[in-house]
């Protein structure tokens, strides 16, 4: 790729790292915790982007992989006394294996069928968690220890969660970027765009598709582990069916094809779920509208309306918007291939 584009991406990344580093000093402790959750969603979305965006396999089941990661962390730290930070990579690996297992039969499915089967997995998984109570604590779930700053870092638990989540997020972002820019990324895109052509070029389509599932699940597992740590409680409702759908919404809103745009998608999904009241207050400024955000049903109406408006206004997601906005700059630096 052109040197100037590489330079531009490196600079943007540096800017991002700087923003992530200084943000906690300028926001309240609570907001640091919220931004940590945005980071968690971002990690899960990175995984989903690799699976759905780059290898073309629609998955409505990544919430289940997050649950695998979250429960792994819970079981390891509660039942076996492993320090929570070390459970994170293990959770990722366990979820990754689950992803590979799902990916194997998924090779035969495509399009809507795959979407609905993965959706079925998201639906069935909480039931499995409820059934195997010996392992998972059933509907009561497990309570984790409160997060405390570790590894020699001294700060509040919320800021610790923030730094942990975002440090991991940035590392995983670079990993995803490297994967996608290189040969692996082009292979995945070839499989996405035309399986038949990919096969005739000698690509092992089944392997690529299965690995994509595994990688995506690995990311989701890490996100799930961090999420479990941040709410320090897991039960079947911690990772509900709707979570998988929100992830897909985050991907669409973030824009396929832009990894950094996914931060926007993650922010949208997080704030929409948790700040319906803010949107309602904002909406009340419009003439003729008077919404009481406490009335049951109003939050749903607000989510739904915002979702529809976002889809109408940003068909290419936040990433597409960013590309359009930055086009005057980037077109001068390099020509689009």
């Amino acid at each position: 790729m052109p040197r100037s584009k590489l330079l531009l991406e490196a600079v943007s990344f540096a800017v991002l790292v700087a923003l992530v580093w200084i943000a906690p000093h300028h926001v309240s402790d609570f907001h640091a915790r919220e931004l940590a959750s945005v980071g968690v969603y971002f990690i899960a979305l990175l995984g989903l982007a690799i699976l759905t965006g780059y290898s073309g396999q629609i998955s409505l089941g990544n919430g289940a992989f997050m649950a695998v990661g979250g429960y792994t962390t819970a079981i390891l730290s509660v039942d076996h006394g492993v320090r929570d930070v070390w459970t994170i990579p293990i959770a990722g690996v366990v979820a990754g294996i689950a992803g590979l297992l799902v990916g194997i039969p998924a090779v035969r499915l495509s399009g809507v069928y795959l979407a609905l089967v993965t959706f079925g997995i998201a639906v069935a998984f909480p039931q499995l968690l409820k059934k195997y109570t010996h392992f998972t604590g059933g509907t009561t779930g497990k309570i984790l220890t409160l997060p405390k700053a570790e590894l020699g870092v001294h700060t509040t638990p919320n800021r610790w969660l923030y730094y942990l989540s975002w440090a991991i997020a940035l590392v995983l972002l670079v990993a995803a970027w490297a994967l996608v820019r290189g040969k692996a990324g082009r292979t995945m895109q070839a499989v996405r765009d035309s399986e038949v052509a990919a096969v005739s070029s000698g690509i092992n389509v089944a392997l690529v598709k299965t690995l994509a599932f595994g990688i995506s699940a690995f990311y989701a597992g890490i996100a799930g582990a961090l999420y479990a740590m941040s709410v320090f409680y897991v039960n079947p409702d911690t990772f509900p069916i709707l979570l998988s759908i929100w992830l897909l919404v985050g991907l669409a809103a973030g824009g396929v094809g832009s990894l950094a745009g996914l931060i926007g998608g993650a922010a949208l999904v997080y704030y929409l779920q948790n700040h319906a009241d803010a949107v309602a207050r904002w909406g009340n400024h419009l003439p003729g509208l008077s919404l009481d955000p406490k009335q049951p049903g109003i939050p749903s109406i607000i989510f739904g309306a915002v979702l529809i408006i976002v889809m109408l206004a940003l068909p290419a997601g936040v990433g597409g918007l960013m590309r359009r906005v930055l086009r005057p700059l980037t077109s001068r630096l390099y020509s689009r291939s």
């Binding site: 049951p296 749903s300 109406i301 989510f303 739904g304 979702l307 889809m311 109408l312």
Partner: peptide
């Protein structure tokens, strides 16, 4: 097709909320 599907999701949320508001939960 994904965008259309997400719009139907938004519609589902809106309808569900409307039902709670109009008829109670």
């Amino acid at each position: 097709v994904v965008s259309a599907a997400i719009v139907t999701l938004g519609l589902a949320l809106v309808l569900n909320g409307l039902m709670s508001v109009i008829w109670g939960g």
